[in-house]
Design a protein around this nucleic acid. Structure first.
Length: 432
RNA sequence: GGAGAGAUGGCAGAGUCCGGUUGAAUGCACCUGACUUGAAAUCAGGCGUGGGUUCACACCCACCGGGGGUUCGAAUCCCUCUCUCUCCGCCA
């Protein structure tokens, strides 16, 4: 959510920037009209309230002194109805304004390249050399099939439906090893606080990070057994619970920065993705991810984005997976982000780089929705924090990358050195 | 699942029965000043959040877990939801 001031004093400029950077059309005339109406109604409502308050006070005083309050009551007779009407009108206008403002994406940072879609993203760097295979490579589905059928999509479909999988044996173990390795790295070496969080969250929480009200159809929603229970939704990423840890709170300056890491499952309905990445583990309704979240002072957030991205890169480097780092253009960035780096891992069978991590500086966009603030030492007014998040990494896609990059001619799989301690010291998974 | 108690400012804790100058006593914490070589102690003052009008000074509105209601007026009365605690039952 952007600062309401941008829709008042700087409306024309804001609209121009949104259109230029995100192709987002702001209805300036409508906003101006609504704002004008809002101002008039709010002034009217508040002055009616002020009048009611003072008259009620007078009645109280008169009554305490034993005077006759009947004439005073009569004088206040029609105030109630007037006030009720003004309140209702104001409420309507404010709701309308609010729903427009809530739907406006964040403004990109000035250094973000202008562009319409992923074709305009800017490659920043590449790390590692894609391995030359002396044999015909199999994709991760086929590699896993040769490892005691460790990846079972038929059974996944039987149990739950399309885009679900069952992992078994050494492949399941490798999946777990990856998550453990990543979480340990971030907690032990990068200073993150490990967190275990709810996988179901309420709508206030989803509003805070920006999933609601606009992107509800990307989520799985859960209704309790009784009508009266509050509706919950499965988290699409641990960013949601981790960032919301500080919703409606004011931190002391010295408590910042806060950094959290969590390994959680993530659930996405993938509505609108029919036919995309239908084969394999790339796009599932349920996948695991190790997520990194920072809550920082505004002046630190850009530097922290570099640091955070570096932490995700470190995972790929230690796993010796070739990747590239991409700065997303204005048109390809997420709704709430002001600057995003994607990390893309090399997949030999697709002969291309595929997204495995996305690291974003959300600026104060989420903090404003959440009212997550901090107070500088000696300052009176609290300020909004900046929030950042990044995958470090998506576990399922990392498993894909390992199956494809570490496959051997005989159908076995080499285990990356750093994972071997998590695999009982084994250096390979034999073909079955 | 059954029975009961509760939710007030950064924290603790009055006020709620009997609605009225209560945005809320008091204590602690915190900030500023005085005293002190410095500190402690003491004294004086300050000290919630969001929003609106205004160039500004300032003024006004809302908020006592959330939502709704009664009333000229609600922290206080009524309904409802959520959460916390105690006891019993059940359970990974």
């Amino acid at each position: 959510m952007l600062d309401a001031k941008l829709f008042r004093s700087e409306l024309a400029d804001t609209a121009a920037r949104l259109l230029q950077t995100r192709g987002f059309k702001l209805d300036v005339a409508k906003l101006e009209a609504l704002e004008e109406r809002r101002k008039a109604l709010q002034v009217q409502t508040e002055s009616l309230q002020a009048e009611r308050n003072s008259r009620s006070k007078a009645i109280g005083k008169a009554k305490a002194q034993g005077e006759d309050i009947k004439p005073l009551l009569a004088a206040v007779d029609d105030l109630g109805a007037q006030l009720e009407q003004a309140k209702a009108d104001l409420h309507d206008v404010q709701n309308e304004l609010q729903s427009i403002i809530e739907g406006v994406p964040n403004l990109p940072a000035s250094e973000v390249p202008l562009g319409a879609d992923e074709n305009d993203n800017q490659e920043i760097s590449r790390w590692g050399q894609p391995h030359e295979f002396a044999f015909e490579t199999k994709d991760h589905v086929d590699v896993a099939a040769g490892l005691a059928q460790g990846m079972d999509f038929e059974r996944g479909a039987k149990l739950a439906g399309a885009r679900f999988v069952v992992l078994q044996g050494a492949v399941a173990q490798l999946h777990r090893a990856l998550a453990q390795f990543m979480l340990n790295l971030h907690v032990n070496e990068h200073g993150y606080t490990e967190a275990y969080v709810p996988y179901l969250v309420n709508h206030d929480t989803l509003f805070g990070t920006g999933q609601l009200p606009k992107f509800g159809e990307d989520l799985f929603h859960v209704q309790g057994a009784t009508e009266k229970q509050v509706p919950l939704s499965l988290i699409p990423t641990a960013e949601v619970p981790l960032t919301n840890l500080w919703r409606d709170e004011i931190a002391d300056e010295e408590q910042l920065p806060l950094q959290y890491a969590a390994h959680t499952p993530c659930f996405r309905s993938e509505a609108g993705s029919h036919g995309r990445d239908t084969r394999g583990l790339i796009r599932q309704h349920q996948f695991d991810k190790v997520e990194l979240v920072w809550l920082v002072k505004p002046e630190d957030s850009m530097a922290v984005l570099e640091q955070l991205t570096g932490h995700a890169e470190r995972v790929l480097q230690l796993l010796e997976l070739p990747y590239r780092k991409v700065l997303l253009c204005t048109g390809d960035m997420g709704f709430g982000s002001c600057k995003t780096y994607d990390l893309e891992v090399w997949l030999p069978t697709q002969n291309t780089y595929r997204e495995i991590s996305s690291c974003s500086n959300m600026g104060d966009f989420q903090a404003r929705r959440m009212q997550a603030r901090f107070r500088r030492k000696g300052a009176k007014k609290p300020e909004l924090m900046h929030t950042l998040n990044g995958s470090g990494l998506a576990v399922g896609r990392t498993l894909v990358a390992i199956l494809e990059n570490y496959q051997q001619a005989d159908g076995s799989l080499k285990i990356p050195t750093v994972l071997q301690p998590y695999m009982g010291g084994r250096s390979e998974i034999k073909a079955s």
